[in-house]
Simulated assay, not measured.
Amino acid sequence: MSEAAVLRIESLWAGYEPGLSIVRGASLEVGGREILAILGPNGAGKSTLVKAVAGLVPVSSGCIWLAGREITREPAHAMASLGLGFVPQTENVFTNLSVSENLELAAALQRVKRSRLDHLYAQFPDLARQRSLLAGRLSGGQRQMLAIARALINLPQVLMLDEPSAGLSPRLVAEVFRVLRDIAAQGIAIVLVEQNVKAALAIADRAAVLVEGCEKVVAPAAELAGDARIAELYLGRHVEAQP
């Protein structure tokens, strides 16, 4: 593990059923203030990988390290207190609770001070204006912001997100990704699973392309954005490199 890495995934095998691994020997790491985009075709194991790290999918072998501590088989409910925030693609807020109730519940569960909520409202002014509104009545972008705010309630060292742009308009995608860039600038490492390759590469520092549950290419995002290998590995077809 490099000195700068805060999260390390080493030779990880994981899947929902015994003997049927979806993640097959993946090894990745991400440093503080870094955004790592995880890309790949449907079925490549991207979401399964981050769910395994979050304790939601059984790991059959391999290791996961967070800030020097092994968390491979820690239960999902303990991850937040260990410094790992996770925003799933769906069901990431309580729609029958208000914005403030969602955040207050997260704060109570993590035993953080009330002042932390004030900081989050300052960071997410849209939520502050809508704090009494039921989360189910928020726009898609606002709901995603609330999910991110909930995951940030106890200042995690690593924030993982599964398809945060799903179902959002290009304008809202740009807004959500701007917020993620700001979060990374505060020192929080971000692991971002995305189907929107162009948008992900635009904000990521590095990107990993998963194929059949294992990383095939890991490189700076700017390098991959102009590399024909992305088309070959991600789309499954060969495209001549641009001059």
Rank of each mutant, 00 (worst) to 15 (best):
L120A: 15
A122G: 12
Q123M: 15
Q123R: 15
F124D: 13
L127I: 02
Q130I: 01
Q130D: 09
S132W: 12
S132H: 12
L133D: 10
L133Q: 14
G136I: 08
G136P: 10
G136D: 09
R137Y: 14
R137F: 14
S139D: 05
S139N: 02
S139R: 00
G140D: 05
G141I: 04
Q142T: 00
Q142K: 00
M145N: 04
M145I: 03
M145C: 02
M145L: 09
M145W: 02
A147V: 02
A147R: 00
I148Y: 01
A149H: 03
A151H: 14
L152D: 15
L152K: 11
L152T: 13
I153A: 05
N154V: 01
P156S: 00
P156Y: 04
P156C: 00
Q157K: 11
Q157L: 11
Q157T: 10
Q157P: 05
V158L: 10
V158Q: 12
M160A: 06
L161Q: 11
P164I: 04
P164L: 08
S165F: 02
L168W: 01
S169D: 11
R171L: 05
R171A: 07
L172A: 02
L172H: 02
L172T: 01
V173F: 05
V173A: 01
A174D: 14
A174E: 14
A174M: 07
E175Y: 06
V176A: 04
V176L: 05
F177C: 04
F177D: 04
R178E: 15
R178C: 07
V179N: 13
L180M: 14
R181K: 10
D182M: 12
I183K: 11
I183Q: 12
A184C: 08
A184W: 07
A185C: 03
A185D: 05
Q186L: 13
Q186T: 14
Q186S: 13
I188T: 09
V193L: 04
V193F: 05
V193C: 05
E194L: 04
N196W: 04
V197H: 10
A199C: 03
A200W: 10
A200L: 09
L201F: 06
A202S: 09
A202W: 04
A202L: 04
I203L: 00
I203S: 03
I203E: 01
A204F: 15
A207C: 07
A208E: 14
V209H: 06
E212V: 11
E212A: 12
E212F: 12
C214G: 06
E215I: 15
E215V: 15
K216W: 06
K216C: 06
V217A: 05
V217C: 04
V218M: 00
V218D: 01
A219D: 15
A221H: 12
E223G: 03
A225V: 12
G226I: 09
G226S: 13
D227F: 01
R229M: 11
R229H: 04
I230P: 13
I230R: 03
I230G: 05
A231I: 09
E232Y: 03
L233E: 00
Y234H: 07
L235E: 13
L235C: 09
L235N: 07
L235M: 14
L235H: 10
G236H: 12
G236T: 08
